[in-house]
Nucleic acid binder design. Structure first.
Lengths: 356, 356
DNA sequence: CGCTATTCTGCATACGTATGCAAATTTGTA
DNA sequence: TACAAATTTGCATACGTATGCAGAATAGCG
């Protein structure tokens, strides 16, 4: 069925003429807080409805110099953590009357074209949630004077805002948990080696173990990717010194690692091997996996992210702000339980070594 | 660190002045195919680079009446199928120099605000990939003269374009597969009852079974949601006439159903129960599940979607087009195997009852 | 070299809205 | 009723770019 050519679109001037007022009046009708009498307002609204008028956001942006668009850069969505974040971001931004321009589906490191697009649309803010290509891109954006928030990531120079959780403490808590469970040998499946999350989790874990008297940690790298994690798991489980406690840097990899352990090596979990993951994302909760996992509070992280952006947009001041939130170690069936320290909260078991 | 107030942004006029040419010349430099000598072009490009100029897409949109933005509406991203689609869409649209405005994170059925936003940004096209809120919204958009494509969904009145796979044939193939595997009793866990995918899959399945002489199919409804699917599974498995072959309307639910079957009811898969899903999405391939599943070719579906949109945008003609693609039944470990009909393709087992 | 045909260029204007300013209207008060 | 104060209104202009048009520059050709 052919509906024909694209309709021209109703303009404020047309509405003005139809309502017998000036174009300014129409504009003011649709500008909250503008000076307009309720009489003309209703008159305008009636005409607008009749003509099917909707303010042209493009034209508005041009004059206000505000696009009400936030760019979100996520290199990949394979790890369910990111779709979760995206969905929550959609909600939070919509509540603030902002919109979400998504940049995804490019694995390569050519951040320049992305940056170009961002700049061309004069986005009001940028959320960088991809683990790679953050550093250069964030520098560029900050230089351009656009508010940027790194999501679940930080950079060395902390000139750009970020929202993260206490990854180092998380790693340390997992070390505590393993040792409290009576484990003696430890392994780690690393994420992307140059990512801050991986660095912090690993450091906290290794330091935590060292503080408890365990100096050796067997390490393989899974690069936060499923195939790499499988390969890492195979190497890990083929070692003569296969550890009995294994921290996998995120749940996305932990799922793969568990599959390899059980179905390729016949390892029983948690009898032969304890596994702890990170993110507490969907599949971790599925009974087939039941992964004991450090949570990252997505909702609160998103709220903090949006809050920072809104503040910076409103004030025009780009003052780097770092929000660091707390997670909890949700205890399920993938790791041996310690004798003490497990408490209930909201019907879930979490590990709290000392009363906090 | 405070970088100060937002930079004003370099305009084409400033570049023009710096390069000693007119603003038109600058515009033409950045408009492919415009009439400009290579001499002035290089001059302009030099000045542009020096000043850090980037064309303002907002202003450009205002005059060309083309935003180069495609709106994508996805109610929820919990089912990994949709993040997959999103990632692929990101790639495909970027290749055409289009951008992706994402609307997600609203479960409620208030489609009107969404529609308002779409219209305000004068998007060049709309992709509706959420199973709910499609009908009304698509009507509205079509009336407004904006190209719309329904992704993985159709409506009764087929005035609006759509991209789907042969869901009815898929259901039928699954019926064939089950019967060929020697099953005698059959069940179905339904998706959203008013969705076209669910309707077609169910119809094909039931008709296929009937054609083979089996008239009773036990049905529970999971609404394409994980919690609902778990509840449906519990009801299904508590029945006296629990079927031995169960088609679950998508993999997202099938995973939940398998977990309930194994861990709550102690049902062995595939010894006691054969399960087949739909979508062939991530977790279906994980060894813990190994779901035999009808695939939907995401990449090709996305290509078709973008192609339709680009055609309609270029021609200005909104002629409803329906692309229906083929899927394959990927055979894994969740269902008993038939004696014949399984062939290898690209290292994967698929079910092809007759040579096609 | 002179003429025409072609390619480039700049001028002016348009896109649809927001907003400062001054005029017009309404409201409040004595 | 009369006047000041407060509110509302319309006018004009600006935002940054694209583009039709006419004139300027260049190329082509005998």
């Amino acid at each position: 069925m052919d509906i024909g050519v694209k309709k021209p679109g109703v303009t404020s001037s047309q509405v003005a003429e139809h309502a017998g007022v000036s174009q300014s009046a129409v504009s003011r009708t649709f500008t909250p807080g503008a000076s307009i009498s309720s009489k003309t307002r209703t008159k305008v609204l009636a005409s607008a409805k009749q003509l099917g008028y909707r303010p042209n956001a493009i034209a508005r942006s041009l004059i206000t110099n505000r696009s009400r668009i936030i760019a979100v850069v996520m290199a990949y969505l394979e790890n369910l953590f990111y779709p979760d974040v995206l969905e929550e971001l959609g909600r939070a931004l919509a509540a603030e009357n902002y919109h979400l321009l998504l940049f995804t589906g490019f694995m390569d490191r050519d951040s320049d074209p992305v940056f170009d697009q961002l700049m061309q649309y004069r986005v009001d803010g940028i959320i960088l949630a991809s683990t790679s290509l953050s550093s250069e891109l964030s520098e560029e954006c900050a230089t351009a004077g656009i508010p940027v928030v790194l999501f679940n990531r930080t950079t060395e120079r902390d000139a750009v805002s970020s929202v993260t959780t206490r990854n180092k403490e998380g790693g340390r808590r997992i070390a505590d948990f393993f040792v409290a469970g009576g484990h003696k040998t430890f392994g780690y499946i690393a994420g992307l080696e140059n990512s801050s999350t991986n660095r912090d989790r690993q450091q906290g874990y290794v330091e935590g173990l060292a503080a408890l008297g365990f100096d050796t940690v067997v390490i393989e790298t899974g690069n936060y990717s499923r195939p790499d994690a499988e390969a890492a798991a195979r190497k890990m489980f083929s070692r003569a010194d296969r550890p009995e406690a294994l921290f996998v840097a995120n749940d996305h990899m932990a799922v793969a690692v568990m599959d390899v352990a059980r179905h390729e090596f016949g390892i029983r979990i948690p009898e032969d091997l304890s596994i702890v993951g990170y993110d507490d994302v969907g599949p971790a909760k599925w009974t087939s996996y039941g992964i004991t996992s450090m949570s990252q509070p997505v909702k609160r992280m998103v709220e903090a992210t949006v809050e920072i952006l809104m503040d910076q947009i409103a004030s025009g001041e780009i003052e780097a702000e770092h929000r660091i939130l707390n997670g909890d170690l949700f205890v399920r069936t993938s790791a041996r339980l310690p004798a003490a320290g497990i408490v209930m909260r909201d019907g879930q078991q979490i590990y709290r070594p000392k009363e906090a």
